[in-house]
Amino acid sequence: MDIINKKEISGIQILRGLASLAVVLCHASFALTAYPALSGFLMNGQLGIHIFFFISGYIVIYSLLKNKYSVKYFFHFLAKRSIRIDPMYILTIFLTLASFWVFSFFPTFKGKAIPFIFQQFAAHLIYIVPFTKWPFYNHVFWTLCIEFQFYILIGTLYFVVNKWPFKAIFIIAFSLCCFINVPNSYYLLINYAPIFAMGIALIEYQMTKKNIYAICFIVCGILTYLHFDLLTLALILASAAVVVLNKKKYLILIFFGNISYSLYLIHPLVLLYLNGITRRFLPHLLSYQLIVLMMQLIFSIAVAYLFYFLIEKPSIKLSKKIKISS
Results as ranks from 00 to 15, higher is better:
Tyr273Thr: 13
Tyr273Arg: 04
Leu274Arg: 02
Leu274Glu: 05
Leu274His: 00
Asn275Thr: 13
Asn275Asp: 13
Asn275His: 11
Asn275Val: 01
Gly276Ala: 12
Ile277His: 02
Ile277Phe: 13
Ile277Asp: 06
Thr278Ala: 13
Thr278Glu: 12
Arg280Cys: 11
Arg280Leu: 11
Arg280Met: 15
Phe281Ala: 11
Phe281Asp: 09
Phe281Leu: 09
Phe281His: 12
Leu282Thr: 05
Leu282Gln: 05
Leu282Ala: 09
Pro283Trp: 04
Pro283Arg: 02
Pro283Gly: 05
His284Leu: 15
His284Met: 15
Leu285Arg: 04
Leu285Val: 04
Leu285Phe: 12
Leu285Gly: 07
Leu285Ala: 08
Leu286Ser: 13
Leu286Lys: 09
Leu286Phe: 02
Leu286Arg: 08
Ser287Leu: 15
Ser287Met: 10
Ser287Trp: 12
Ser287Val: 08
Tyr288Asn: 10
Gln289His: 11
Gln289Glu: 14
Leu290Asn: 03
Ile291Lys: 08
Val292Leu: 07
Val292Pro: 07
Val292Gln: 07
Leu293Pro: 03
Met294Trp: 06
Met294Asn: 11
Met294Ser: 13
Met294Leu: 15
Met294Phe: 14
Met295Ser: 14
Gln296Pro: 03
Leu297Asp: 08
Leu297Tyr: 09
Ile298Thr: 12
Ile298Asn: 09
Phe299Ser: 11
Phe299Met: 14
Phe299Cys: 14
Phe299Pro: 04
Ile301Met: 01
Ile301Phe: 01
Ile301Trp: 00
Ala302Gly: 14
Ala302Ser: 14
Ala302Pro: 06
Ala302Asp: 08
Val303Ile: 15
Ala304Leu: 09
Tyr305Thr: 03
Tyr305Pro: 05
Leu306Thr: 13
Leu306Lys: 02
Leu306His: 00
Phe307Asn: 03
Tyr308Trp: 09
Tyr308Gly: 00
Phe309Asp: 11
Phe309Thr: 07
Leu310Phe: 09
Leu310Asp: 03
Ile311His: 02
Ile311Tyr: 06
Ile311Leu: 11
Ile311Ser: 10
Glu312Asp: 15
Glu312Arg: 04
Lys313Cys: 07
Lys313Arg: 13
Ser315Tyr: 01
Ser315Lys: 01
Ser315Gly: 01
Ile316His: 12
Ile316Ala: 07
